[in-house]
Simulated scan of single mutants.
Amino acid sequence: MTSQTKTLTEALTCKGISVRTTNNAEISHETAKLGRLWQKFYQNHAGQLPEGEDIYGVYHNYESDDLVGAFDVVAGWQINHEQDETELASSDAALNTGNVVEVTIPAGKYLVFSENGNMPNTVMNAWEKAWEYFNAPDCEHTRTFEVDFERYIDGNLEYGQVDLYIGIE
């Protein structure tokens, strides 16, 4: 596991499907929503994306911090504003099945935790490392709880690299 500070110089816009949950709800299989969100995304949207397209998990609308309060999670893809209008309209039509939402990842500073391996264990390991880091008494950074996101490199939701971006001040 590696971590480094990165600055996004431009905002990213993503589209996808969304749920609202809490970390407490995700502990129990009966109340967890994220697994079902990703399953629905994989079944209904991932196959429509171009091969090798990065996939994003965007965490936003935090009620408070990571211990209490709800937040929204969007499983989705980045919108490329440089695509021509015809290409954009046809790809939007294919992908806009169900309740598709749009979310903006703001420009700013992020601490990035990278992991490689089998999903979903790899992404859970990245989150555990992030929580461990931010809960350490000597932590150098402060989370913003504005937007955090996972970037699945080359769109691989089974095995590969995930970069977890945590928004920092």
Rank of each mutant, 00 (worst) to 15 (best):
V58P: 00
G35N: 12
N96D: 15
V147N: 09
M119E: 12
E169S: 15
E128F: 01
T21K: 05
W127A: 09
I105E: 12
K15Q: 14
P106T: 06
L49T: 11
R36C: 06
L88D: 02
D92Q: 13
Y110S: 04
L8T: 02
V19C: 09
W131C: 00
K15Y: 08
E158K: 10
H45Y: 12
I55P: 01
V101T: 10
K33Q: 14
T22K: 04
R36A: 15
V103A: 12
H141T: 12
T122E: 03
P106I: 00
S90C: 13
A11S: 15
Q161F: 00
N99M: 13
S28H: 13
R36Y: 06
H81P: 14
A130P: 05
N96Y: 02
L164S: 02
F41K: 01
S64N: 12
G35L: 08
I166Y: 10
E82W: 03
A89T: 09
V58M: 10
L88A: 09
D66N: 12
T144S: 10
N96W: 04
G155N: 04
F149Q: 09
K109L: 07
E140V: 15
E128I: 12
R20V: 14
E10W: 04
Q161H: 03
K109M: 08
Y152P: 00
D163G: 07
S91C: 07
A89D: 15
E53I: 06
P50N: 07
I55L: 08
H141K: 15
N118Q: 11
E150A: 02
G52W: 02
R36H: 12
G52H: 05
A94M: 06
T104H: 07
N121T: 08
N121K: 08
N125V: 02
S114G: 00
T13P: 02
Q39L: 12
K6T: 14
E158N: 01
A46T: 06
L37Q: 03
V112T: 03
F145V: 05
E169I: 13
P106R: 01
R20M: 10
T22E: 04
F71M: 02
E87K: 13
T97L: 07
D148H: 06
A75S: 10
N135P: 01
L12K: 08
A126E: 11
D138Q: 13
V73T: 01
E128S: 12
V123F: 02
V68M: 08
G108V: 11
N118C: 04
T2V: 04
D72T: 04
K129H: 14
L88I: 00
Q48C: 14
C14G: 11
N80W: 03
N121A: 11
M119D: 14
T5S: 10
A46I: 09
F134L: 14
Y165K: 01
E102W: 02
Q78I: 00
I27P: 01
P106E: 04
V101K: 12
Y59W: 07
L34Q: 10
E26I: 08
T5K: 03
G69T: 05
A126K: 05
P137S: 05
